[in-house]
């Protein structure tokens, strides 16, 4: 909701609709804002003029070239007006217009208004009509080149990939984004999306992805996105969070090397939570360990969440007393 700017200022040599020959036969219709309006807007003369004619054609749902042109102006003044876009689509259909031309129009607007819901929706409907997704990856890549975490672009990209089965090359694209910024959470999310919808997390894929993730965690150990992805991978490991040897060895070594990333410590705490009442084993994930870790988090490495780590310790302690299999289902 942060886009307040329209491209109103860019309209040069603009002729008011009431001064245009082709609109002579139409009587403009004023907005009725009531006697004492709320959150009033100080419309510019051109804005008001355009919408006076917009209200006039809407009344009869006029389907014409001039109405199409009018919706372009109205959308320039307010690209967030979904009625304008909806009406414009009906005119495009009614006049049987070349929708590829419309793709160019909307592409230009999206590149300027890339956080506007309505323009992305217009694009989506056009692609649904055309059943032609060939330009969508390029468009979203252009937007993501400016803002690699633009939620609208990712949402559109996922929709296109899923609808038209365009997964090929996506992992490579993600690699380039992650090599630009290893902390790009949107790219990590996309990685999960691609694998989940293609190969799935088979044993082989899981092993490959774990290698990839551990390699990246080693490079930047305070990267929440990579740690989260690792947790996501282990949702598919039969042993849970704490029984994948590659992962546990990596974590233990990282810890021994003196690393105290709060994300590392948090994973170790959760491993303790998982194993705390597996009595009799040679598990290193014990209540004693949890105590040490939670105390360190609370007093040294993640002090702003001190109370939470105390709570986690209490939870683990409680679980250890309940013994095996007594896990309650309540929160």
């Amino acid at each position: 909701m942060s886009d307040y700017s329209s491209d109103e200022n860019e309209i040069t040599e603009y002729l008011l609709y009431r001064n245009r020959k082709e609109w002579k036969d139409v009587t403009p219709v004023k907005q009725d804002d009531g006697e004492e309006p709320v959150v009033s807007i100080d419309y510019s003369e051109a804005y008001e003029d355009c919408y006076d004619y917009f209200r006039a054609v809407l009344k009869n749902k006029e389907i014409s070239e001039r109405a199409l042109e009018l919706t372009r102006s109205a959308s320039r003044f307010n690209p967030a007006n979904y009625t304008v876009w909806q009406y414009r689509r009906e005119i495009l259909k009614g006049l049987d217009k070349d929708l590829h031309e419309e793709l160019d129009v909307i592409q230009e607007i999206i590149l300027k208004q890339s956080k506007n819901y309505q323009v992305w929706h217009h694009r989506k409907v056009l692609i649904e009509w055309l059943k032609d997704p060939s330009k969508e990856k390029y468009l979203t890549e252009k937007v993501l080149a400016k803002d690699a975490k633009n939620y609208h672009a990712w949402q559109h990209r996922q929709w296109v990939i899923k609808t038209f089965n365009l997964y090929e090359g996506e992992l490579e694209y993600i690699d380039t984004l992650l090599s630009d910024d290893i902390r790009n959470n949107s790219a990590w999310n996309q990685r999960y999306f691609v694998i989940n919808n293609t190969t799935g997390f088979t044993e082989e894929v899981l092993s490959r992805e774990i290698d990839y993730t551990l390699f990246n965690i080693k490079a930047v150990t305070e990267n929440e996105s990579a740690w989260n992805y690792l947790r996501g991978l282990l949702l598919h490991d039969k042993g849970g969070l704490s029984k994948n040897e590659k992962v546990t060895e990596f974590c233990e070594e990282l810890y021994k090397s003196g690393n105290r990333s709060p994300f590392l410590l948090a994973v170790l705490v959760d491993m303790c939570y998982e194993q705390v009442n597996e009595a009799g084993g040679d598990s290193v994930y014990t209540l004693e360990r949890a105590k040490q870790l939670c105390n360190d988090l609370a007093t040294k490495y993640d002090t702003i969440r001190a109370k939470y780590w105390q709570y986690m310790l209490d939870t683990i302690e409680k679980k250890s007393k309940e013994g095996n299999g007594a896990e309650s289902t309540s929160h």
């Binding site: 307040y4 329209s6 959150v39 967030a80 007006n81």
Partner: peptide, 24 residues
Amino acid sequence: MVLNGKLPNLSSMDTNRSVFMYFA
């Protein structure tokens, strides 16, 4: 001022005035 005034530069939010009213 948001509630009662005439707001400049907010015309692209013209369609969401009731949301602005709620915020105010």
